[in-house]
Design a protein around this nucleic acid. Structure first.
Lengths: 210, 210
DNA sequence: GGCTGTTCCTACGCTCATGTAGGATATTTA
DNA sequence: TAAATATCCTACATGAGCGTAGGAACAGCC
């Protein structure tokens, strides 16, 4: 074939510059991790997803670890917002049932509206590069839950509250995490409203025995 | 220094042969994973732990994946035994409290007596080489739990049992997993007897609302 | 002691992913 | 339009881990 009519083998990517590429890269990285797990997140794959080459990615993030951290930094805002909004400011004794149901509904909706971000959290556990950050996030949420459960125990007038508290926090966190996980991979036939009402009722029953 | 008095730089490992090395290798691998996570499991590390070189390991297991599978195959016997023994044969309506407490106690003891094996389970989740095997294990346990919870729902005469079942199973499994996890990394001031009694009471309360 | 077969070790090749140097191309500026 | 600058691409260096070929040391047997 003649040189004149030969098609270019690739399309050279537009000159956007690091500033405008950063968010694109984070988007691509999020999708990669959410779809195929953290192990699928490598610089080559990210570059390809954008129709670009590695050095372009490295111009935005100095390393894979840097990229992953930046991704988490961006997502954790959304994530925390969802979780913290689900937790009530104060424990309202007049209607604990409502409190639970509303909380779970808020959580489940937050998850359902940001599935990829939430998948990220669970995928990323496998990666040591961000283990510390993740653990810190969990600690923060636990702390908040601890406050609320502590208040609840006080209202109940439970004996031995100080000792029971960590167990109850663990229990509550496990339940939340389990339900969120199942929300992310199974798509069962429960609406979020139904599910939060049911789970809320069950969990409340347990906590009334606390 | 003279050649005659030069110390050997290494001790050549005894000639045991693959047959007798296999269990040693599995032990070393288990310890590695339990202590430092799956990522720490590489053939070189395993070899070093035994004072041996890689080809010796490869004489016993054809690949890293093979080794990991063999390890899980060996451990899962112990693991299943613990879990299945914790689950009652039949749902005894006369004393459900006892049923729960005994179950949790059996589970927690099984975990506490095989901490490394259980750590393995949670570490290994990060590795795609055995993801399928792990998932299958979970499925088997779920199935068994499902049977029991199904029977329980029948005894309760719960409405909509079929639809509620999977939610309850997820809930129950999440709680178990969460408690086991916390048993493995925190060493709190609860005895296993106390803990199982308390958790049993809470979970029962929830399930009476099922 | 010498022979045979087993077991172990040294040394290397391969692949995949990270990260970088330097040239090519586009865009902006003068 | 031509130089200066920003951005991108090709090509390579490096390192970790997997897996293997072939020679060295040992054990048991005659």
């Amino acid at each position: 074939m003649s040189v004149g009519t030969a098609k270019k083998r690739y399309v050279r990517a537009p000159h956007l510059g690091p500033e405008r590429r950063r968010p694109q890269i984070l988007d691509a990285a999020l999708k990669l991790v959410a779809d195929n797990g953290v192990r699928a997140l490598n610089m080559e794959a990210v570059a390809q997803a954008l129709g670009v080459t590695k050095p372009v990615v490295y111009a935005c993030f100095t390393s894979r670890e840097d990229l992953l951290n930046a991704l988490l930094e961006r997502e954790e805002i959304r994530l925390f917002e969802g979780v913290m909004a689900a937790l009530p400011k104060k424990v309202d004794i007049t209607n604990p049932q409502q409190l639970m149901t509303d909380g779970f509904r808020a959580l489940f909706n937050a998850v359902d509206n940001n599935r990829d971000s939430w998948r990220l959290v669970f995928s990323v556990e496998a990666d040591p590069a961000v283990a510390a950050r993740l653990q810190e996030g969990r600690r923060l949420v636990s702390q908040r839950v601890s406050l609320l459960v502590g208040a609840w125990l006080k209202l109940l007038g439970a004996k031995d509250a100080k000792r029971r508290l960590p167990i109850l926090v663990t229990l509550f966190m496990s339940i939340c995490e389990g339900m969120v996980r199942s929300l992310l991979d199974k798509s069962n036939d429960w609406s979020i409203d139904e599910l939060s009402a049911y789970v809320g009722r069950l969990v409340l029953a347990a906590f009334e025995e606390a």
